[in-house]
């Protein structure tokens, strides 16, 4: 991959981040929505502190999966057909477009994870343990979700169902990430090695990244 490729990646990522700065979809809609979901659950399952401490970490990751993916999909499917045509005419490499959108989504997802994480720690009294591994898990999940959401957003872009179809496609595919993240926290809590779970998540990230890069052109052409 040439420096021109990475220059295009940077340009696409900058454009998406600029768009987010102007519109504030993640900051003003998705993050508050995630925080409200965390607030609603105790009203449904009960406010017993021990129970909430027990289910808190798993619930946090479920919220990240279900709401966080909207961040990536929103960025991936925001281009209209004329915009896509213009990108093609300007010579934008579709693979660079995919990587750039995923990179911007990763950064936004990291912000989402951190803010919602702080809310979850506050509401559910979750213990922060194994900080380096926890940071690594948060990073991998952000990258994995961003890649999955970007790929799915590209698939459904300009279809009649639009983003309505996305949850059905992404939710089942994000299961390895959910399993990896929740089991990693559980492993840290019990003092076990979490390397196998981290490797599982890294494998998912790599597989989705490779498929996304290789199929970017046929998806753009469709």
């Amino acid at each position: 991959m040439t420096s021109g490729f990475w220059h295009q990646v940077r340009a696409v990522a900058d454009r998406d981040l600029l768009r987010e700065r102007r519109r504030g979809d993640v900051l003003w809609i998705t993050i508050p929505f995630g925080a409200i979901a965390l607030l609603l659950v105790p009203l449904a399952v009960g406010t017993d502190a021990a129970l909430l401490r027990e289910i808190g970490p798993g619930l946090y990751w479920v919220i990240v999966m279900l709401f966080g993916v909207l961040v990536a999909v929103g960025k991936a499917s925001s281009d209209t057909v004329p915009q896509q045509d213009a990108s093609l005419l300007l010579g934008l490499d579709p693979a660079a477009g995919f990587v750039g959108r995923a990179a911007a989504a990763t950064l936004l997802l990291l912000i989402f994870e951190v803010v919602v994480g702080v809310v979850a720690v506050g509401l559910y009294d979750i213990s922060i343990i194994g900080v380096p591994w926890l940071i690594l898990t948060v990073l991998i999940v952000a990258a994995g979700l961003a890649l999955l959401g970007t790929l799915t957003g590209s698939i459904v872009n300009s279809t009649s169902a639009g983003t309505a179809l996305v949850p059905l496609l992404v939710a089942p595919l994000s299961v390895p990430l959910l399993l990896g993240a929740t089991q990693a926290y559980e492993g840290l809590r019990l003092g076990h090695s979490i390397l196998s779970w981290v490797l599982l998540m890294v494998a998912v990230v790599l597989v989705v990244a490779i498929i996304g890069v290789l199929t970017a052109r046929p998806l753009q052409e469709s």
Binding site: S158, T159, L165, L169, L173, I211, L219
Partner: peptide
């Protein structure tokens, strides 16, 4: 469900093929 969202056979095939590959991980 994805296949039902596009009438154009080429676009439908392109999009479904990507999902057909990703889904095989299962």
């Amino acid at each position: 469900a994805l296949r039902r969202t596009t009438d154009d056979p080429i676009a439908r095939a392109n999009r479904a093929a990507v999902l057909g590959i990703v889904g095989a991980v299962q």
